[in-house]
Design a protein around this nucleic acid. Structure first.
Lengths: 339, 339
DNA sequence: ACAGGTTACTAAATCGTTTTAGTAAAACGT
DNA sequence: ACGTTTTACTAAAACGATTTAGTAACCTGT
């Protein structure tokens, strides 16, 4: 039934050796002085027999897969889903396929995933790293496997990365809020030591200082990075009702926190922007089209993904290419949630 | 640097043959009468040398990869992103990893992707098929490769599938609209012959009939399945303004059409639900949390994904398991967009 | 006419597993 | 005490490609 055509079948059909067939099918006929006629004949036969190379055999011999591994926190998240999509498109253009995995920000899964991808011999890796991955990443880099970190990186790790200027983005977000005469800005962020979040928090702190606004630690809420969104909403409902009247704006450091926050406002009957102004790091359909539109500090997702693939492929295809540190800029999109 | 430990290294370190090592590491020691002591020794050594099997060699020999391929229209879409996430989780539980691909609903990509996955020897496939894929799918099924179609299927193709009762869901959506005294219901759908869309359209038509509402073909808008969302919005703006006053409700057959529709309403200054009622097939953050909340006919995404993996894995692990046709039910979630 | 080069190929090794077909040595039954 | 099983392993083939190291046959210049 499933008749598998191998290189030997072509070879015997053409009356030549497997070597010749391999050379021809890898496009090295000219180079290897295979006659034009023979090359044509072999190609025709391969076509006719519907030959498909066995990628295991190929991989075993060459170690190459033309596949890149992409690790993100959560593929169903707006930011990562869109990132993944563009990564796939760009990789496809350059002849690579991509294998996605979600780390779920969980220690066990983070480490397993990376090992699993290495076992599958990806040609390169694009990773939104969790802090748990640091040891594995160090190994990866030490073994000189092409790797690009995305969204965040480790200052201690000498790797390629593509990120956004989180500090400045956050600072400008606070400047914007301050310019609208908002006085008491709460911060909702994740309880994680990932760099991008730290930088966004630092931006918030600096922003307050620069605008001579007081920093009130009780207005900073760190939500555990866990999964269930319902739990996040509950935490926020509690937080916002406890702090009622003590804040007139909230800055969310990620798009999923922003979504949970809006849900909490709904439940509490708090209206945006009348009772509370909102600004969120990272954009989303809900922010763009919901009423009121949510003012956001948006990330150039497409560019990030493009750059990451570009850097990675360069790294894969020329071993000695130097490290790239790409820092893109965020953009304030004013909508109706700040007044 | 990258010292690769092979089974032979373990064999010579343990003073045994490669065969023995292979048997032990595949957990067949008992069965193959390898002594307890030797098994322990080999396992210890494998651990100590940090042995990682070469998956190419393994795959070349066994033909198995413990990987399943998932093809969706677009990984950045809410429905497919969430589906993919659950597929990955469930597959992980059963010891499989998953390789995602987006077909982009495009002919060339659709066919390439499937061939590529077959070349990579997936153990099984979960596919939201495009009509372009039919010939490849027929081949897949004929070759008895474990396959589960999801979201839609081909009546002519004798395959497993997991879907939703699109006809009834759509019918009930129209019933709901009609029950609110809405009279002129426009339909916005995709210009595709995919089955799920046809069924939703049929549900709309039957719903109108059942409620003795006239079917006005000029109120049915089919948007080409193409990519650029901006273009979809433009089409809809045009359609809605041309038909102004001729409809008092719109039923969207997919969540991304709904998003584009809301954007169009924004641009036209049409208010929901005062000037137009809205009901959308499939849910979304925007519909759930936006103001007004959009009434939707929601799909049980989690269940669909779970079922698909369950059926697929059964199919993979026991070749003769019978075909499964799973049809789940949609659920009306009433919010504020219908009045 | 013959060394030396080029052309057009091929045989065999190799990648790292799994599996088939054994085989000595020990244990067992009568 | 001798044939048969069982135990505890092993050598070699196989999976399907790529690559190394050739080798005849033909050309070319002197």
């Amino acid at each position: 039934m499933a008749k598998k055509v191998s290189i030997k079948d072509i070879a015997s059909a053409a009356g030549v050796s497997a070597t010749t067939v391999s050379i021809v099918l890898n496009g090295r006929a000219r180079e290897m002085k295979i006659s034009e006629a023979m090359a044509k004949k072999v190609e025709k036969l391969a076509e006719k027999l519907n030959y498909r190379p066995n990628l295991f055999a190929k991989g075993l011999r060459t170690g190459k897969t033309h596949t890149i591994g992409l690790i993100v926190d959560d593929i169903s998240n707006y930011f990562f889903g869109h990132l993944a999509k563009v990564v796939e498109e760009e990789a496809d253009k350059k002849g690579y396929t991509v294998m996605f995995c979600s780390s779920e920000n969980n220690e066990g899964k983070s480490r397993n995933i990376l090992n699993m991808l290495v076992d599958k011999h990806m040609d390169g890796y694009i990773i939104a790293p969790t802090t748990f991955m640091l040891p594995e990443l160090e190994k990866l880099i030490a073994e000189k496997r092409p790797t690009v970190l995305i969204d965040r990186y480790f200052p201690s790790l000498n790797s390629n990365f593509v990120t956004v200027d989180n500090f400045t983005g956050s600072l400008e977000a606070i400047n914007h809020l301050a310019s609208k005469a908002v006085k008491k800005i709460a911060l909702v962020t994740n309880d994680t030591d990932q760099l991008q979040m730290q930088q966004r928090i630092d931006g918030y702190v600096s922003g307050l200082k620069k605008n001579k606004l007081p920093l009130d630690p009780s207005l900073v809420k760190k939500i555990p990075f866990g999964r269930p969104e319902a739990k996040q909403v509950k935490d926020l409902v509690q937080f916002f009702s406890r702090m009622k009247g003590k804040f007139d704006a909230v800055f969310f450091t990620s798009n999923n926190l922003g979504v949970a926050g809006l849900e909490a406002f709904n439940l509490l009957g708090l209206t945006v922007p009348d009772q509370v102004s909102v600004l969120c790091f990272d954009d989303n359909d809900l922010f763009r089209l919901g009423k009121p539109g949510i003012t956001v500090m948006s990330q150039p997702i497409k560019q990030m993904a493009k750059k990451a693939v570009e850097v990675l492929v360069k790294q894969i295809e020329q071993a000695d290419s130097p490290l790239s540190h790409v820092v893109l800029h965020t953009q304030l999109i004013e909508r109706a949630s700040v007044q």
